[in-house]
């Protein structure tokens, strides 16, 4: 770990729903430009951890910092809302089910937030949308509605929508799990491209091959704790923990079946 302050710093994150503890004291530091994959069985808390970073699922204990700003600050409700709206502009998020706005065309999906929050003019917003959609290879569909797109295309638009806010970090919550197998690659390619541009990314995924080829670090989570973490070649080729070994074995068997 480098000596400088971590870009994202999660300190003793705890989360419970009633008596159910979903995150049990998790700490994680991510440096600028680093790409971290979080893997683990369903119910392990990996999505909850990711969603805690932009406060979609607020923590019940611990702190999350982005650079020198604490994300889950203790503020009165109104002030907190203003604070979190600002923080979220810096954190892009991509969902398993895309969550594109179906009543808006592709173009407007991308321009909505920059226009509302950054005061861009129509011309500026359009230029931005064209730039981002070109990047994800969706410029030809700029005047389509989401319902006219395939799953892979929807997800690429969703990535462009997040990138249009010029975020410092991108969070991917099983971005390819809902896709037909033949559509996974086009989304992975876009994510690889972001990796090459040194975007800081945290990726919750079931795609072990992708995680291995793209990520700097892999976290294996189970039952609300980080069981093991390290570089991908260690986690995937030579895991120390028995739980990691079991999970990977089962996962590989499942993929072959």
């Amino acid at each position: 770990m480098s000596a400088q302050k971590p870009f994202i710093d999660i300190r003793h994150a705890k989360k419970s729903f009633g008596t159910l503890e979903v995150l049990k004291d998790i700490s994680l530091q991510v440096d600028r430009g680093q790409i971290v994959a979080i893997i683990g069985p369903s119910g392990s808390g990996k999505s909850t951890l990711l969603r805690a970073i932009n406060d979609l699922d607020p923590l019940t204990g611990g702190e999350i910092w982005l650079e020198d700003k604490q994300i889950n600050m203790d503020l009165p409700h109104r002030q907190y809302e203003r604070h979190i709206n600002e923080v979220r502009q810096e954190i892009g998020m991509v969902f398993q089910h895309f969550n594109l706005f179906p009543h808006l065309k592709v173009r407007e999906n991308v321009t909505l937030a920059p226009k509302m929050l950054k005061g861009l003019t129509d011309a500026e917003a359009n230029a931005l949308a064209e730039e981002q959609l070109t990047k994800v290879g969706m410029i030809e569909r700029i005047d389509y509605y989401p319902s006219q797109l395939s799953g892979g295309q929807k997800q690429r638009v969703a990535i462009a929508r997040a990138l249009a806010m010029k975020p410092k970090v991108m969070l991917f919550d099983e971005a390819t799990s809902a896709l037909d197998p033949e559509l996974v690659e086009e989304v992975n390619l876009v994510m690889k491209q972001l990796a090459e541009e040194h975007m800081t990314m945290i990726i919750v995924t079931h795609e072990m091959g992708f995680a291995e080829s793209v990520c700097d670090r892999v976290l294996f989570m189970d039952q609300g704790v980080v069981v093991e973490e390290g570089p991908p070649e260690v986690i995937f080729r030579n895991p120390k923990s028995e739980r990691t070994q079991n999970f990977l074995r089962k996962h590989l068997a499942g993929q072959k079946a």
């Binding site: 932009n54 979609l56 809302e81 709206n85 600002e86 979220r88 502009q89 954190i91 892009g92 998020m93 969902f95 089910h97 969550n99 594109l100 706005f101 179906p102 009543h103 909505l112 937030a113 509302m116 929050l117 969703a158 929508r161 997040a162 806010m165």
Partner: peptide, 27 residues
């Protein structure tokens, strides 16, 4: 309206009212 819609709007930085006005209510 799917909960994911308001989540997507909020993660972009829209306030609850902005998300309602531009995303939820039109749908």
């Amino acid at each position: 309206v799917d909960k994911g819609q308001i989540e997507a709007a909020r993660t972009l930085g829209l306030s609850r009212m902005q998300a309602l006005r531009k995303v939820v209510v039109p749908q």
